[in-house]
Amino acid sequence: METKAKRGSGRSASEERAYRLWLRIRRNWQLYVLLFLPIVWLIVFRYAPMYGAQIAFRQYSPAFGIEGSPWVGFANFVRFFNSPKFEPVIINTLVLSFYSLIAGFPIPIILALSLNQVKARLFRSSVQMITYAPHFISTVVIVGMLFQFLHPRVGFTAVLANALGLNAPNWMGDPGAFRHIFVWSGVWQEMGFGAIIYLAVLSTIDPSLHEAAVVDGASRLQRIRYIDIPGLMPTAMVLLVLSTGRVLEISFEKVYLMQSPLNLAVSEVINTYVYKVGLLSPILDFSYSTAIGLLKGIVGLVLIIAVNHAARRLTENSVW
């Protein structure tokens, strides 16, 4: 290469381009050295599993390994479609997910709009501090808190019910209450933290817009309606696209902790089912579990691309 570096006249345009490219790569070789470990990590821990996901189309057995196990095509997928678990698991996942989305999406926006109206600094920062706090509590502790708070004998709700002369409810043991407890405890935990991003966007709205609106006699509510909300739209849209794309990724951690034999009919979701089939059942079925997981992954990918496309068409805002 060194000898070629002298400007020869006999080289074609494409050779010249390739050579320039090589020079740019060589000039930055140290940057590639920095990238080396992260790329190795990415291949080993993120892309090797994608290659391994082909066992969804095989009948995997540890003795034969990934490539050696017999190819069965879509048999594992067909098995899942025909399984009695298929319908409840899909329905539970979708219901829990969309319920969380519908309840969890607007509330941080409302909280941010409301906080943005507060002038008193101390009050504002106290409310922020308190509402962010639950975000930092771990899922295990949150679910543990739910069990204690809603305990039919020693819980807060029981104490309250007794004081009012009512029968203490046993919500944690009631399958009908599972979804509401799951969703609203999630809202309780995340609304403050979810509002941060909207507050940040609100602080970037041009103040002259508000000044002009005040001169024109707009009320606060009107200014929220015509200035603040349109200002939040792009961010809200991006976040909505992202959460819709993750609609099948219902938090394994929390659902699994809240599961009990009593509420399994409404609490079994794709992620918990994949875990049980793959790593917990007496007869481990890696291929079947992987097939269900892969199905979820592909539907999720299609979903996020579709929603992003729709968001771009409808609102001219999108993630990419």
Partner: peptide, 8 residues
């Protein structure tokens, strides 16, 4: 957006 999944 996409991962190999739990088991892989």
């Amino acid at each position: 957006l996409f991962s190999g999944g739990l088991i892989p």
